[in-house]
Design a protein around this nucleic acid. Sequence first.
DNA 1: GATTTTTGTTCGTATATCGCACAAAGCGTG
DNA 2: CACGCTTTGTGCGATATACGAACAAAAATC
Lengths: 251, 251
Amino acid sequence: MRETDFISGFAKGLSVIEAFDAANPRLSITDISRITGLERATARRCLLTLAQLGYADYDGKFFSLSPRILRLGHSYLTATPLPRLLQPFLDQLSEKTGESASASVLDGNEIVYIARASHKRVMSINLNPGSRLPAYCSSMGRVLLAAMNEGDAKSILENSNRKANTPNTKTTIADLMAELQLIREQGYAVIDQELEIGLCSIAIPVRNMRGTTIAALNVGAQAPRVTVDEMVATYLPVMQSTRDTLAGLLV
Amino acid sequence: MRETDFISGFAKGLSVIEAFDAANPRLSITDISRITGLERATARRCLLTLAQLGYADYDGKFFSLSPRILRLGHSYLTATPLPRLLQPFLDQLSEKTGESASASVLDGNEIVYIARASHKRVMSINLNPGSRLPAYCSSMGRVLLAAMNEGDAKSILENSNRKANTPNTKTTIADLMAELQLIREQGYAVIDQELEIGLCSIAIPVRNMRGTTIAALNVGAQAPRVTVDEMVATYLPVMQSTRDTLAGLLV
DNA sequence: GATTTTTGTTCGTATATCGCACAAAGCGTG
DNA sequence: CACGCTTTGTGCGATATACGAACAAAAATC
């Protein structure tokens, strides 16, 4: 690929979209310039382009994203077979277990939810397709890391901001690498309130016919109601049978 | 705004992302060129840019979107107060009614789901934040159209592909405009299997403190189980009380 | 209300991108 | 395996975009 095969204006525009988040829902030209590192003139041009295309609103002072932006993510969700394939199985799984069931893939050091059947909300945050969680402290993240070769997994862990969300959170590389080894041996990952107090979850890998792990599947539960052992005893078999039904459909 | 305030490379790149959908999950350079109308050289540069940034995967022949694309839509969902504000109320509403509850806004002639608490799946399609439905034949769409001035609503209806999804679907401009008038008078919209056989739903507008309609709220139900009258009698009061609780929080 | 600071806009220029035309590489088919 | 036929990659001139600085406008501070 040559130098000229990269459209920097496009890349800059995308970085402008990503500059918006919960902490910065409404941004001025200068704000965007500060966050993205773009020149003010360039940031302005990106924002005006977004506004003109209907992806952003502009009140003369602040820009904010418009719902049209959702078309972009939706392109992925409908265009990718995996989320659509998994959804009915998650619905089933959620029905059988009485808890929320989700599927995710890895993107950098985060997991990205690609499908979800939520039952009752046990977490303080709301999760949807597109939601992200750090890989190092989520059950699905650990399953996906365990499926990689050790070197890559280690470098992802090293590049993660491994903060202790709760007293239970494993944060050292050594502990986490040992945990990954355990997950490889037992074939599932369990998180006991490492992400949030009161939240337990169990995850297993989903593999295609060549044996490559292409996603993770999980079921979440409330800590006081269910112990880790109960979770393994009750949910794991249902999850595994869901995965087996699913297996034939995966390329 | 001047001519030079528009970055065409950015706009072209966005149209490339939107070219992917359920029918076209994997696209070659030529495919993209055909769908978007861009020059092949340009389409190629856009795709290579997406691939280099990690938003797309390339196997040497076909491009497909990667989960990183979800960051873009997620920017909107977390950056916009409304979806996050509505979510807990939808959870509540879904809990109380035992059915799915959703919120949406208008984008062109479609409604876009911005939050949802799904209970049991009554529809054949799966809905998530970002999902789109035609406004003319959905309860929330009708509520949002009814809130606009008649001329604008009419022109949206005229520009919609008003196909009859079921024998119940209202498709003529006259019928739909009359329906909007009724909705304005009674303050809610009811759909009786116009989108899909077996699916009924009821929607109400959500207004900010200035009285502007900023979203619609709905509850869906299964036709054989619940009649339209029962829906109005049972769900409408709960929905209205949810909206009232919510009202104080809206700017 | 004057001064300072911050923010938004404009402009000329260097440069990167566009689109065209051509070259190369697959891909079936006879 | 040579032949069209389709798809993909590349070089180049024309053109549009990004940069940086300078200017204008608006807040903020005093």
